[in-house]
Computed example of a mutant assay.
Amino acid sequence: MTLPHDQQLCQRRQELLDRIGEWCDQYGRARDCVRLLAVSKHFPAGDIQTLAGCGQLAFGESYLKEAVDKLDALAGLHLEWHFIGPMQSNKTRRVAERFAWVQSLDRLKIAQRLAEQRPADLPPLNICLQVNISGETSKSGVEPAAAAELAAAVSELPRLRLRGLMAIPAPTIQFGEQRRGFARLRELFEDLTAAGHALDTLSMGMSNDLEAAIAEGSTLVRVGTALFGQRPPPDGVPP
């Protein structure tokens, strides 16, 4: 018998949390050291409300107009919103005003605008630097060799709090290759921590490579398909 959609969402979340916990056990990590970010882009506000009702409070969005509509619709739920998509200069004000986290920062100019536009009555905006760990020209992200300079500059800006690193390595189904990509980000994270940055967030791992990410030290996994199901077409949603 097929469960109603709302029950399926909550069941998938629990199954996902159970798998994450099992992998933490397998790789000698505490079960509570990996957070789940539900990537809700292109999914309706009703699905987010359902997941919030079964305990999921952190959600990631990539498209600003779509995201703001959901933030407005769900304002009474006090959710934790992460912006995880590429960002142009003309989008920074609304991101600074509405989100708790930005995980896709890769340019100092954008960081400066976010710092200037973050309202003084809100807590500092949590920042992860997006690193182009695989060197793909089609992907956003600061080059690994330039990450330390950007981290130092962002750390000096007011109204921002540098929390860690994020990456989307080149896709592969080979577990060893997945681990090697994530290991490069972890090593960079360790280098920045050794240099004095108080980092606590290593955002890596999505639906198809969660185990490898957890094995290499991820503290936050970004999951859409394995949680919500097959993503619907974007239907012309602007970036």
Rank of each mutant, 00 (worst) to 15 (best):
L188Y: 05
I168G: 09
M166K: 06
K109F: 06
R159G: 09
F99L: 11
K65Q: 15
D69E: 15
N126M: 13
A151T: 07
M166S: 04
Q117C: 06
I168R: 05
H78F: 07
V142C: 10
L79Q: 02
T137G: 12
I84G: 02
E66Q: 12
H78K: 14
V154M: 10
E156I: 02
L79T: 02
L150C: 09
C54I: 00
A167W: 01
L57Y: 11
L157C: 12
Q49E: 15
G141I: 03
V95N: 00
G60W: 02
G141T: 07
R184V: 09
R107L: 06
G76V: 07
I110Q: 02
I84Y: 01
P144Y: 03
K91W: 00
C128P: 02
N126S: 14
Q56Y: 07
I173T: 15
S138V: 12
L71S: 08
L160T: 03
L64G: 05
Q103E: 15
Q178R: 12
L77I: 04
F182Y: 13
K109W: 00
A152M: 09
P144F: 05
A67H: 01
P171L: 10
G164H: 05
L188P: 09
G164T: 03
V131Y: 02
D47F: 06
L71W: 03
C54L: 08
T92I: 08
F59M: 04
F59K: 04
A111S: 11
F182T: 00
R161P: 01
L74C: 12
K139S: 11
L74D: 06
R184N: 12
L160P: 00
A111D: 02
V154N: 07
I168C: 05
Q88P: 04
A52D: 11
L57F: 12
A153C: 04
A147P: 06
R118M: 07
G181Y: 13
F59P: 02
P171M: 10
W101T: 08
F175A: 15
